[in-house]
Each structure stands twice: as C-alpha cells, then as structure tokens.
Simulated assay, not measured.
Amino acid sequence: MRRMILTSSLLLALSASAMASQVYKWVDAQGGTHFGAQPPQGQQATTINTAAPPPKTAEPTAAPIFESIADPEQTAIDEKVKREIATQEAERKKYCQTVRTNLAQLENNPRVRVEVDGEVRRLNEEERQQRINEARQAIGENCK
C-alpha cells in the first residue's frame, strides 16, 4: 500500500510537466488576437510558454501608470496563469507531505510490509534503505 502511495505520488509530481501543452497566439485578418492549442493553417503563430512561472523579485516593483487601463484579455490570461501556478504549488506541497510521511515511516519502522501483485510481503533491510534513499532524494529535489 505504501509503495503504491509513493509510486503514485512520484508519478503525480512528474505528470505536471507532461500535462503542459503549447499555447499558440495569432492575429486574424480583422486584427483580433486569438489563442489556441493548435496553430492556424496558413498564418504565422507564436508559442506562449504557460508552464514557467514569472521570476521572483527581491522587492516589489512600481506598478506601471497604464496598469489601470489593462487589456481584458491579458488580465484573463494573467488570472489563468496565477490559478495554474497556485494549483501546481498545492500539488507540490501535498506530494512533499506524502513523501515526508513515507520517509518517517520507513525510518521509524524496520518491519515495513508492501503489497506486490496482491500478495503482502515484508521489505528486507536493503529494500528499505533503498526506499529511504529514494524518498530523501525526492524531498531534496522537489521540496523546499
């Protein structure tokens, strides 16, 4: 059961980058800006990177004067990106909590049992140490 949780947690963490897709932006003949998952036929489109969050700054920057006259499309896109980043951060925190819990159980319990193909068996010390190392590595790479 714990192995299934650890495996599914790792897959969940790795699946965020696999689910990210390209977004294309183009302007039609009437001057309207469009966004889509597929570029239009016969028109030039630019790709937009939606997976990368904006870089963190040390101190807040002054807001531009024209911010109050923001483009509604851009505002909607900004809100969408903020929601996606918040969702990814929540998934990362949940993953980190699960991995830390699994690590604590592996370190504190020398008699860990796992279910493999419907059969419950006990991990030997070598397998247990390997899983401890994998959990520590996952925490080091993904958790702050």
Rank of each mutant, 00 (worst) to 15 (best):
N49I: 06
I85G: 04
E115D: 13
S9D: 04
S17I: 08
M1D: 11
F66R: 00
L14Y: 06
P110V: 05
G42I: 08
P60N: 14
N49W: 13
K144C: 03
A45N: 04
I5G: 03
N124W: 10
Q137G: 08
T87G: 10
E84A: 06
T101S: 08
Q105T: 07
A45E: 01
S21V: 10
S8T: 11
Q97C: 01
L106N: 02
A20M: 08
E127A: 12
N133D: 15
V27F: 04
R122K: 14
L103W: 10
R111V: 07
A18L: 09
N108S: 12
I48E: 01
P64E: 05
R2N: 09
V81R: 07
A20H: 02
P40G: 07
R83M: 09
H34P: 00
I69E: 01
A70F: 02
E125D: 14
I132H: 11
I132Y: 09
R131W: 10
K144R: 15
G140W: 03
R136W: 02
E134P: 01
N133P: 01
N142V: 04
A51Q: 07
M19L: 10
A86K: 07
E84G: 00
S15G: 06
V99T: 02
S17Y: 10
S15I: 04
E73F: 11
V112L: 05
I48R: 09
L11H: 03
P39T: 05
R122E: 15
I48H: 05
T46D: 15
L14F: 03
P110K: 10
K25V: 13
T46E: 15
V116G: 05
G42Q: 08
S15R: 05
Q44R: 12
V116Q: 12
Q41K: 14
M19P: 00
V27Q: 14
V112F: 01
W26C: 09
S17Q: 14
K56E: 13
N108Q: 14
L6M: 14
E107H: 03
K93P: 01
G36F: 02
L14C: 03
P40K: 11
E59G: 11
E126K: 08
F35A: 01
E67G: 00
V23A: 07
T87F: 13
A104L: 14
R136H: 07
A51T: 01
Q43E: 08
T7I: 11
E67N: 07
P110G: 03
I48V: 10
L12Q: 08
Q30W: 07
K25Y: 04
I132M: 13
R100E: 12
W26V: 03
R111S: 11
L123P: 01
R3I: 14
Q44V: 15
Y95Q: 08
A90F: 09
A16C: 02
A29D: 13
Q129F: 07
Q105Y: 08
L14A: 12
A135D: 04
D71I: 06
E126A: 13
V114N: 03
D71Q: 03
E141R: 05
C143P: 00
G36W: 04
Q97A: 13
E134D: 14
V99L: 06
G140Y: 04
L11S: 04
E127L: 11
D28A: 06
P110A: 05
E125Q: 15
A135T: 00
